[in-house]
Structure formats: C-alpha cells, structure tokens
Amino acid sequence: MLPGRIPVFDVNGEIDHYVVPELESKIMAVMDEGQASIILDFSDVSYIDSAGIALIILTIQRSGPQGGKVGLVVTNRNVLKILEIVGITKLAEAFSLYTSVDEALEDMVEDRRGE
C-alpha cells in the first residue's frame, strides 16, 4: 500500500453473519491507519446478507466524517440486487458504486485532486 494511495480491500466468497465480525475488524484496522477512503473490492463476492450491508454502512459512517469516501466494486448481479433493495446504491454522500477496481481508483483519485 503506497502512501497517499487509496487502499483496496479485497473480499471473496460469501459475506454473512458468520464472517462479518472478522472482516469488520480487518477493514476497521485499515481505517485506523489513518485512511479516510477505501475501496472494497467485492468482485468475487457471491453472496451478501444484512450483516454485510451493515458493514458497508459502518465503513461509510467511518469514512465520511474524515472527508473520505467508500468505493464499492460489485459485479455479481444478485449481490447488486440485494444492495438495490436496501437502497444502498442510492447513497450519494461518501459512497460510490463501481464495476471494476480500475474504475474506482481512477474516479476516487480524480476526486482527491479536485479537493
């Protein structure tokens, strides 16, 4: 992780009530290092439930007040549908949805330059 670079946190498999506690402490550890923004790469996530959604919201709540932003990369259409149902895709502040990590990096670094 290069200084000043936005960290990319890669998650695989199924995000449910069982795996979220460990995942949460790992993501929060990255945020604790002073990173305001983070990219959550869920390209290889095949399943998400309400605990996973709560984790995304927690990350946004952590990032936003520090002037950061959470970029979420989702490609699985079933996962995307769940995020749409709970309305997370409509969040505009401190959150953006992307289809690839490259797209997220490009857009979020651009955002930073604009500040």
């Binding site: 439930d49 309400s50 605990a51 959604i53 709560a54 919201i57 927690l58 709540q61 149902i85 709970v86």
Partner: peptide, 16 residues
C-alpha cells in the same frame, strides 16, 4: 450506536 442490521434483515425477508 452501530447500524442495526436486524430491522434490515426483516425488511430483506419481506422484500425477497
């Protein structure tokens, strides 16, 4: 003080 996923869980059940 944490985001509650409980309400969201029941909401998801009814939505799905």
């Amino acid at each position: 003080g944490r985001p509650s996923h409980r309400g969201r869980g029941i909401f998801l059940m009814t939505a799905l």
